[in-house]
Design a protein around this nucleic acid. Structure first.
Length: 587
RNA sequence: GGGCGUGUAGCACAGCUGGAUAAUGCACCGGCCUCCUAAGCCGGAGAUCGCGGGUUCGAAUCCUGCCACGCCCGCCA
């Protein structure tokens, strides 16, 4: 609890010096309590026990007596060698009224460029790919909530083998060819007929099969190789044919993401850095570096082992034929990104760790900073790794449909009075939010196994749980507006906090008071799951508050309770926005 | 073989810049709807924190060895 710490730390420092202890790293030692019932802040007294020649518990107790009184402090005590400080609830109320939940100074406002998703535009999103998009978009939203100026960017891989295969297939294969080639495999889902990502991926798959084994495979490979080569040398005709092949696929993928509330500010094509000469100039420059090396056929690499890289130390950036590699273009892309104000954050799968390291080291070698990278582990199915080729995939589109359907079943059962249109609206919001939350609530480095029953859980610990708390706050608001009068009028003259506050209200107050701390940590450490967890606690404490404190009883409004409820409602609303959950008024 | 990551109740997961009784959800047991949405609230039971050593007043957290799983080690993207 930063607002309390700011007040209390100097007081403790004083108390310590009267006891003869100076120069402690108090800022680091004074930490948020582990458990709510211990207090709000705790100072372990073990480290200076020797210096004082006293047992930690005696120090804690003595310290508790020496800390000066302050309106912010509700209770100070020494237990088990810890000095525990509990905030005065009345003071917390005053702070909330005065400065809101922002906790004081959040004038960060840095410019941040977040690159995420950037999936090859060759087929529909599956759940495995979606972790990147959901993680990336949540980072974007949380940075914005925090007050940063964010650009969300999709780096479009518009050259190279994958798009080349797609372009070749669309040019050379008829619908019949594709159908014949994919016979025996799972047929296209008719639900997605007309959605280019689902349709064109079949051409891609057919081409992949033909490349693998057919009498023409050698010929096909040569043709594709020529196209790739041309694209890597910036051949505009070939690049244009690639674009007309992948753009509808990309549009389909973006439709899926849009349904999850994921949008981008900018799309940057990889090929730009080839056609504008950046990549050529970069390779020239890399060639002059002292760690540059050259293979027999003229291919060039950097010896990153000389800079401490372990394992494979040669980092190739130029092929024997003079063309660039993906990583080379990535470096040019990053140099371009660094020409803009602000920090860079990339969201990448764990398979890109080595590559990211190579790119980062090369950037440093060139005098640039490394971008910050958030890595995530892959999502797999209980049957194993997701693979389009083996038909072992869950498409995002199918998951979202299923989630909506399951949510609709629940809504119909719980709210028989709602009409189908309303049910559909709620089900869509609940379904998509649940899917996002299910993925964002676990830390990125943890391996994730996708299970339908987890993704479609709507109980405590899920997005709908948070959404539900918010709708209850909205519901109360509506009730009061219709039965009593406008909320603004009710609260316009300020509210008086009662002397005795119910436990559940105090808990809610304390959770609200650390809201900003949690957001800050989630943003700065790139750990959105921490904020997701905090939102669950907030929703839980709001529910408990509602259960205990009747805002409206016998036609009388308790103004203070109403004020707390309204504060929580707006905080929940903003927090949900930050997680990409749809904040419904009714559900 | 080398590099990186993960291993915490039956299941899932938080805590990992060292600190108290290891948090939360599901499942399990028991309470709570004449009152603002019970998708809820309250309580209970359930954990040798992968295994062994070490550092420390104190280790899930740091070091080290081992085991299991994942990812990477292309002049692919």
């Amino acid at each position: 609890m930063q607002i309390l710490k700011a007040v209390v730390q100097p007081l403790i420092s004083q108390a310590l010096s009267t006891m003869g202890v100076e120069n402690l790293p108090l800022d680091k030692m004074l930490q948020p309590s582990r458990e709510l019932d211990q207090g709000d802040l705790a100072l372990p007294c073990f480290p200076f026990s020797k210096r004082l020649g006293m047992p930690p518990n005696d120090i804690a107790e003595a310290l508790a007596k020496h800390v000066a009184e302050h309106p912010a402090i509700g209770e100070v005590n020494g237990v088990n060698g810890y000095l525990n400080i509990r905030a005065n609830p009345q003071w917390l109320v005053e702070q909330l009224m005065a400065i809101g939940v922002q906790g004081g100074d959040s004038k960060k406002n840095r410019a941040v460029l977040i690159e995420h998703t950037s999936a090859n535009p060759n087929g529909p999103f599956h759940v495995g790919r979606a972790r990147n998009a959901i993680l990336g978009d949540t980072l974007v939203r949380l940075h914005r909530l925090y007050g940063n100026d964010v650009t969300a960017e999709y780096y479009v891989d518009d050259m190279g083998k994958q798009v080349a295969v797609l372009a070749w297939a669309l040019e050379h294969l008829s619908e019949e060819d594709v159908a014949a080639q994919l016979e025996g495999k799972e047929p296209a889902n008719p639900v997605w007929k007309g959605k280019a990502d689902h349709e064109r991926v079949r051409w891609y798959q057919a081409a992949q099969a033909l490349r693998q084994d057919s009498e023409n495979s050698k010929e096909i490979e040569e043709k594709i190789g020529t196209m790739v080569h041309a694209s890597e040398h910036g051949d505009e005709h070939v690049l244009a044919s690639f674009e007309s092949a992948y753009q509808p696929v990309l549009d389909g993928m973006l439709t899926t993401l849009g349904r999850l509330g994921i949008n981008f500010d900018r799309f940057t094509k990889e090929s730009i850095f080839v056609t504008n000469g950046d990549v050529g100039r970069l390779m020239e420059r890399l060639g002059t570096l002292e760690i540059n090396g050259e293979a027999d056929n003229g291919a060039q690499f950097l010896d990153l082992g000389a800079r401490g890289l372990k394992g494979k130390t040669e980092f190739f950036y130029r092929r024997g034929d003079g063309s660039s590699l993906y990583a080379t273009r990535d470096i040019a892309y990053h140099m371009w990104k660094w020409t803009m104000e602000g920090d860079l954050i990339n969201v990448l799968g764990e398979d890109h760790k080595l590559q990211a390291k190579q790119v980062g080291m090369t950037l440093e070698e060139l005098g640039h900073k490394r971008p910050e990278v958030v890595f995530y582990s892959f999502i797999k199915l209980p049957e194993g790794k997701m693979s389009t080729r083996r038909g072992n995939v869950v498409f995002m589109d199918d998951l979202l449909e299923e989630a909506k359907e399951q949510a609709a079943v629940v809504v119909r059962e719980l709210r028989p009075q709602y009409d189908e249109e309303k049910i559909a609206t709620i089900a869509e919001a609940v379904g998509t939010s649940a899917v996002r939350f299910n993925i964002i609530k676990v830390s990125p480095e943890k391996g994730f196994t996708f299970r339908w029953e987890d993704a479609l859980t709507f109980e405590a610990g899920s997005a709908p749980f948070i959404m539900y708390s918010h709708t209850r706050a909205c519901s109360i608001r509506r009730r009061i507006e219709s039965d009593v009068g406008p909320i603004d009028t009710l609260l316009e003259h300020g509210v008086q906090s009662p002397v005795d506050l119910p436990d559940s209200l105090v808990t809610l107050l304390r959770i609200l008071s650390i809201h900003h701390d949690c957001l800050e940590k989630a943003v700065n450490d790139h750990r959105p799951h921490l904020f997701a967890e905090h939102m669950l606690r907030l929703a839980n404490s709001y529910n408990a508050f509602l259960n205990e404190c009747y805002i409206l009883s016998d036609g009388e409004v308790n103004q203070f309770y109403l004020w707390i409820s309204e504060t929580a409602r707006s905080v929940m609303h903003a927090g949900m926005e930050g997680l990409g959950l749809v904040a419904l008024d009714e559900m």
